[in-house]
Amino acid sequence: MAEFSTSVKDAGDVNIIYLKGYLDAHTAPTLENTFSNLIDRERYSIVVNFKDLAYISSAGLGVFMAFIEKVRENKGDIKLSAMSDKVFNIFDLLGFPLLYEIFKTEDEAITKFKEIKKLENQ
């Protein structure tokens, strides 16, 4: 059976979800739970790190669609980072770059959240 796991790191106001393995219709509920747990804790500034994600199908892509509006309604965002070319191509094929900000590195995504916060506090 395909292995998939997530881990979550708190980095100040931002949470980072690390994806590992194979994200398909069988493993997508694991990622749904991870998002639900963060939203239950009212953590809405979310960076997803794709570095160790080997595979994604549309069932995995659907998870991001399921949570994005709720997160943005709460002045947060889901920012994507560190995708392999292979995974990016699938997101790109389906037009996701129009709806999500995708960064080369996790740090760039975190910095973007901090910049927004700074502007809000001015």
């Binding site: 549309s58 892509l61 659907g62 669609m65 399921a66 994005i68 509006e69 389906l94 037009g95 996701f96 129009l98 709806l99």
Partner: peptide, 12 residues
């Protein structure tokens, strides 16, 4: 697929 529509309907 129409992503903008899915965005509004929370489904895909």
């Amino acid at each position: 697929p129409d992503l903008q529509k899915y965005y509004r309907q929370h489904r895909i």
